[in-house]
């Protein structure tokens, strides 16, 4: 008897090369490797799992229903990719990121990335030297957990986990996962906490005993709000806290090119007549914005509101006094 991997490959080859759709029974009898002394129900469960595994590998299995039975074959148009012409720079960039993340356990999708590059025909050439250490904090734990959560986000399956908050309090949470994101060495989950009935964000480093609802794996547990966008979580440090107000920061002409880099898509940028760039952005904590301006300087200036200027000046006076 063929082992399970060989059986899956045989089934894939059979469904891809058959001129006409084949039934489950035909697959069973074709010598693909299904156990001979298996009852019908066990065979059908195994056959369904095998089809799911092939779908996960990228095969689109066409189902043809007749009065007698369902029959299957690979839908070639939906399964096979047409060649993609990549610009040399893009190809080098792809190879660099793939090379960097290949050995980084903190990147949750490295196995998928390697297979994706193989499909694109971009592998086989090592590419430039590149390495990565996304996280120094338990990358072996964070990476796989983030992968599991991303899959639950995709399949709309609920999660439960123990969580220790910033005050050291531990609690069990049931969460509908909406998105997963990474920031400065830590992966985060954003989703609806079922008990609190509110959208919350959790650091994966503070989780334990994560479990995905295993019941009815093909049935979604929840609907994600249509307007959810995990990018909204990518706020700057001064955008957390109380009520947001509009603030303005000016980049001198010499550093105007940095505006796009530093503002990370938040707020709006306006180039002024002298070449400087005026950034208008929502800030929930003006002292934190003043701190950000000093930290990212030189050549960045607070423009308004007056409370921002007051926070900056009073803060700098404290610095002068402390170091005088």
């Amino acid at each position: 008897m063929a082992d399970a991997t060989e059986r899956l490959v045989n089934l894939a080859l059979y469904l891809a090369s058959t001129p006409a759709p084949v039934t489950a029974l035909e697959c069973r009898m074709a010598g693909l490797g299904y156990p001979e002394r298996q009852d019908d129900a066990a065979f059908l469960r195994m056959f369904e799992r095998d089809k799911d595994a092939l779908r996960a590998a990228g095969l689109v299995i066409e189902v043809v229903t007749s009065e007698e039975a369902e029959a299957y074959r690979v839908d070639a148009a939906a399964t096979f990719a047409r060649p993609v012409d990549l610009e040399p720079g893009d190809l080098a960039a792809l190879r660099a990121v793939a090379s960097a993340f290949a050995d980084d356990p903190g990147f949750p999708f490295r196995d998928d990335l390697a297979l994706a590059l193989g499909k694109l025909g971009s592998a086989g050439h090592a590419g430039p030297l590149a390495t990565s250490e996304l996280s120094a904090i338990e990358p072996d734990v964070q990476g796989p957990l983030a992968r599991t959560i991303a899959e639950a986000v995709q399949t709309h399956k609920s999660l439960t986990f123990g969580y220790t908050n910033a005050h050291g309090e531990e609690k069990l949470h049931a969460v509908d996962p909406y998105g997963v994101f990474f920031r400065e060495g830590v992966w985060y989950l954003t989703g609806r906490d079922r008990d609190a009935d509110a959208v919350r964000t959790y650091a994966i480093t503070r989780m334990r005993d994560l479990e995905v609802n295993a019941s009815r794996p093909h049935t979604p547990d929840f609907e994600r709000p249509g307007d959810f966008d995990v990018r909204a979580q990518e706020r700057l440090p001064f955008q957390y806290g109380g009520r947001a107000v509009s603030a303005q920061v000016r980049f001198e002409p010499d550093v105007a090119w940095r505006a796009e880099r530093l503002t990370r898509g938040q707020g709006t940028l306006e180039t002024l007549g002298d070449g400087s760039v005026l950034w208008t952005v929502e800030a929930a904590n003006l002292t934190a914005l003043a701190s950000w301006i000093v930290g990212e300087g030189p050549a960045l200036h607070a423009v308004g509101p007056p409370e921002l200027l007051e926070a900056l000046v009073s803060g700098l006076k404290r610095v002068v006094a402390a170091h005088g």
């Binding site: 894939a12 080859l13 059979y14 469904l15 891809a16 090369s17 058959t18 996960a56 590998a57 990228g58 095969l59 689109v60 690979v74 939906a78 399964t79 096979f80 990719a81 960039a93 792809l94 660099a96 990121v97 793939a98 993340f101 990147f107 949750p108 999708f109 490295r110 998928d112 990335l113 297979l115 994706a116 193989g118 499909k119 694109l120 025909g121 991303a150 899959e151 995709q154």
Partner: peptide
């Protein structure tokens, strides 16, 4: 030639997610 499966397959959701995530990190 491998029968029937001699051409690259389309990217799966997991593979597209991996590429998107990696390219996020490179600023694409």
């Amino acid at each position: 030639d491998p029968p029937g499966l001699d051409r690259p397959l389309r990217l799966t959701v997991a593979e597209a997610r991996a590429l998107g995530a990696a390219l996020d990190a490179a600023g694409y």
